[in-house]
Design a protein around this nucleic acid. Structure first.
Lengths: 181, 181
DNA sequence: ACCTGAACACCGTTCAAGT
DNA sequence: ACCTGAACACCGTTCAAGT
């Protein structure tokens, strides 16, 4: 039974989705593909690299969604990006923690930075300022997603606030406070 | 050689600080205390519980700093809290990831929520709105700290933006966008 | 080229046994 | 009460050997 890199990442993703990030181990991934754990190492250098690939798929999704409407007002664009990023993170269990743990490949990160900054720079923000704003939105979305995906934290916070509204409130407040430099 | 709970948490904290969170294991902690790994389980129920205790020490520090000046304007207070929280997280290696992973004890979290909301409620914000604002600030500080403590992410971002200024910018933007409900 | 089987070092945790 | 020593199951990873 032949295996490809892509299949391994996909299997890992659905496994993490079903059983949680803590249940993600090489033997379980291999079993899901009808193969031995050691077979994975022909296609993937390490579990760390595998998790990095998993994390990148989330960023890629958010980037694709946000990149679509580049003609909008830059504040609107930032808000849409933040919402899309959070949604992408929440779409799979444990993805926030995964993104917090796994570092992206340096070249991918640089390319993503350029792509994200472009629509802001086109509307008059300096590149440095655009990246700064983007980083804050990344941090906000990641932080919220971490809280929402932490079981106990989720249960506790959910009693007192609504996640969607609170995130929207914080995001809109932040973006409205940004200025063109 | 007798051991106390507190000593174990402290040893774990300094070990994580020196060697990183990945090097944190029961045998290493025990060795630092001149004891066998199995001895730890007389004082601590599990590694998970130990990490929870570690995470709580960070929140406690930030809470102590922020609780100090309760008479300030609520926006100023929120900003000071955010800055204190981030500083507390950055003071130990891997603390952000630790706080993202370990869930606090439910009663501690509830008490912290009350304590933090109090100065805001005293100045006219509703309890729900105060908690919502606080959660956003928590998320922002945690997200930033995660980025700053992720080695590769750090190196990459540091080339383009200043962490301190960018965090301050995002935090002040957000707080200035909050309103009394 | 791609996979199996068996092994290695390491880890969290348990438990009888010591003092 | 508190600690040691030895063990267990589990994990990431390697590597010879098969096909």
């Amino acid at each position: 039974m032949k295996i490809r890199q892509e299949e391994i990442v996909e299997a890992a993703l659905t496994l993490a989705d079903e059983q949680g990030l803590g249940a993600l181990n090489m033997r379980a991934i291999a079993a899901r593909l009808g193969v031995q754990a050691s077979a994975l190492y022909w296609h993937v250098p390490s579990k760390t690299a595998l998790m990095r690939a998993m994390a990148q798929s989330f960023h890629a999704r958010a980037l694709a969604v946000a990149g679509a409407g580049a003609a909008k007002d830059w504040r609107r664009w930032l808000i849409d990006y933040g919402v899309a990023l959070r949604r992408a993170l929440l779409s799979h269990q444990g993805s926030a923690l995964l993104c917090a743990t796994a570092r992206p490949a340096p070249d991918t990160a640089a390319a993503a930075g350029d792509l994200l900054a472009a629509p802001l720079v086109a509307q008059g923000l300096s590149r440095a300022h655009a990246l700064s704003c983007l980083a804050s939105i990344n941090a906000l979305a990641l932080g919220w997603a971490v809280y929402e995906q932490s079981e106990a934290m989720h249960d506790h916070l959910a009693e007192m606030i609504g996640f969607d509204e609170s995130f929207a409130l914080g995001l809109e407040a932040m973006v409205s406070g940004f200025h063109v430099d």
